[in-house]
Computed example of a mutant assay.
Amino acid sequence: MTKKAGVVGIGLMGSGMAQNLLKGGYDVWVYDVNQEAIDDLTTKGARKAKSPREIGENSDVVLMSLPAVSIVEEAVLGDEGLLKGLKEGSYIIDLSTIDPVTTRRIHNEAKAKGVKTLDAPVSGGPQGAAAGTLSIMVGGDETDFEACKEIFSVIGKNVFHVGPIGAGQTIKLCNNALASVHTVALGEVLLTGVRAGVKLDKLVEVISNSSGDCWILRNFFPKTVLVDKYDPPLFTLNLMHKDVGLYIKTAEEMGVTSIITSLAYQMYKAGKATEKGQLDHTSVVKMVEELSNGKIGTINS
């Protein structure tokens, strides 16, 4: 594969990916609705495109990192979308988190035009995007995955081919649904323990070394909940709300009950309604505090 790459969506995630592509020697074209983001990357060597179509006209592989299903659809299928510009044999790698049904539909429409697609949602946040250490779960044809391995190695550290098209999105939604449940449950048990008279640092220490331990407690809470700091976000509440909603939709389509996840989703929905959407997703814990008229407190570093 040549080193002509495009990036559609250069927010907190896409910007880091684009910069790593530039460092890796790629000729990078970028597009975003945010002109400031484009200007910042052009000063670092990227080329400015006026539309996804222009990205497609100048790229052999395009990475997308976009915040919503409708935006992904427009970027690929719209009148000025990627499929209007990409050549036969080109690749679209969608690093956004959307539902697998939409992913497969986009794949089929791209395939009809000779364009190959991979769904490749990521984990690792803006820090991982900037450092090139993202975990990437890739769905799609194994031959296409192998063809794109080099570009994956530039933006990520742990790259997994997880199955056919849509499998990456399915795994990402399952992961984030579980993370949402863990987050809400942690808020409840920490507040219960503190209100019962247990010191917060002891509570966290014991749970972290017992069967109730989880990744969210070890990696998110020390940076957010336990220091009462939710801005700047590691991953916004709005995005978690979106992802959990997509998981519930997927579960329903599979005929699987999602009672517990639906309860967590309602807490995120309440957080969004009370203007916490742009805060870190763990600020959903503040809903637990507000509903319980209490505070978990903080741990001094």
Rank of each mutant, 00 (worst) to 15 (best):
K172Y: 02
K3N: 11
S90V: 04
A270F: 09
E73A: 12
V288T: 02
D228M: 06
E290I: 05
G245R: 07
S51Y: 00
I171F: 06
D79I: 06
M17H: 03
Q19L: 13
K223H: 14
V154M: 10
K50L: 15
I207E: 06
L134D: 03
T192S: 09
F145C: 04
G45Q: 07
Q278M: 15
T257H: 15
N58M: 04
A273C: 10
I171W: 03
I296S: 00
S96G: 05
Y268R: 05
E252D: 13
V189P: 07
M240D: 04
V159A: 11
V7A: 06
G193F: 00
C174A: 13
R47I: 12
L246E: 02
G187Q: 02
Y31D: 01
W215N: 13
V62A: 00
I207S: 00
K113S: 10
L63Q: 06
T192E: 14
V227S: 10
P67K: 06
P67R: 07
K149I: 04
N34A: 14
M254Q: 15
E188F: 00
M267Q: 12
V204C: 04
E74V: 14
G78Y: 09
N58R: 07
A68V: 10
E73S: 12
V181G: 15
E188L: 05
L178G: 05
A120S: 09
K84D: 14
D144Q: 01
T236S: 12
D27V: 03
G193E: 07
T192Q: 12
A177Q: 10
K223E: 15
A177N: 11
M137F: 12
M13K: 05
Y247G: 05
V284G: 04
K269Y: 09
G78I: 08
A75D: 08
S96M: 06
A110W: 08
R105E: 12
N158T: 12
T274I: 08
A18W: 04
P52H: 00
E36Q: 15
V101M: 13
M13D: 02
T282I: 00
M1Y: 08
A273R: 09
G156H: 02
K149Q: 14
L178T: 14
P121T: 08
A273K: 10
M17K: 01
G6K: 03
T102W: 01
A130C: 10
P52C: 07
S180H: 10
M17V: 06
T103D: 05
R195C: 09
L86I: 06
V284F: 03
N219R: 10
K269H: 09
G277S: 03
A49R: 04
I93R: 01
E253S: 13
D119M: 00
S153R: 12
E88A: 13
Y268K: 01
T102S: 11
K149P: 05
C174I: 15
S180C: 10
K84I: 01
E142V: 11
L237Y: 05
G128K: 02
G24D: 11
V194S: 00
I299L: 01
K272L: 15
K249Q: 11
E142T: 02
G197K: 09
P222C: 07
E57T: 00
N175T: 13
T143Q: 13
V284R: 02
V101F: 14
M254H: 11
